[in-house]
Amino acid sequence: MIRHIVFFSAARREDIDRIAEDLNGLARIPHSDFFEIGLNRKVDQLGTDVDVVVYAEFRDEAALAAYKAHPIYAETTAKVRPLRELRIAADFVSKA
């Protein structure tokens, strides 16, 4: 299983909810086995830079590649990119 985690920070605080709403559209892409969007609660003293988190699970690299190649992914990227300041992504293989 591939775990896909992406962290976003908004360029403007007032765009946080819009970013989360736009990213939630990625759930319509059929290639993930699990998908969710969350707002950072910012309770960690050192972890307040991130505003929105995308977490998804994919059965393999091919499913993740198909997800990223889907037209909804490109549409969502075009909507969110102008609103974000930071984007950090990590993909790792989980044996769980």
Rank of each mutant, 00 (worst) to 15 (best):
E75S: 15
E85I: 15
E36V: 15
F34W: 07
D44L: 10
P71D: 14
I88K: 05
A90W: 11
E36D: 10
D33I: 05
I72S: 04
A56P: 00
A62Q: 07
A89M: 06
Y55W: 04
E36K: 15
E36G: 11
K68N: 05
Y67S: 02
R81W: 12
V52D: 00
V80G: 09
A62F: 01
Y55R: 03
K79E: 14
E75F: 10
D51N: 02
A63R: 01
F92P: 02
K79H: 13
R84C: 13
K42D: 12
F35K: 06
D60H: 04
R84E: 13
V93L: 12
K79L: 14
R84H: 10
L39V: 14
L83R: 15
L64K: 02
G47S: 07
L86S: 13
F58Q: 02
P82C: 14
Y73G: 03
F58A: 01
A69C: 06
V54Y: 01
E57M: 06
A89D: 03
F92E: 07
R81Q: 15
E36N: 11
Y67P: 01
P71K: 14
I37D: 00
I72T: 12
A63F: 01
G47I: 06
D60Y: 02
K68S: 04
F34S: 10
R87Y: 11
V53C: 07
A56L: 00
A66Q: 05
V50M: 05
V50C: 05
D91M: 10
G47T: 08
S94F: 07
Q45H: 07
R87E: 14
D60F: 02
Y73N: 09
A63C: 04
Y55D: 01
I72G: 03
D51Q: 01
V54D: 00
T76G: 11
L64A: 05
E57V: 04
V54G: 02
G38C: 14
I88C: 07
Y73F: 11
L86N: 12
T77I: 13
I37R: 05
G47E: 09
V80N: 11
A66R: 04
A90T: 15
E61R: 06
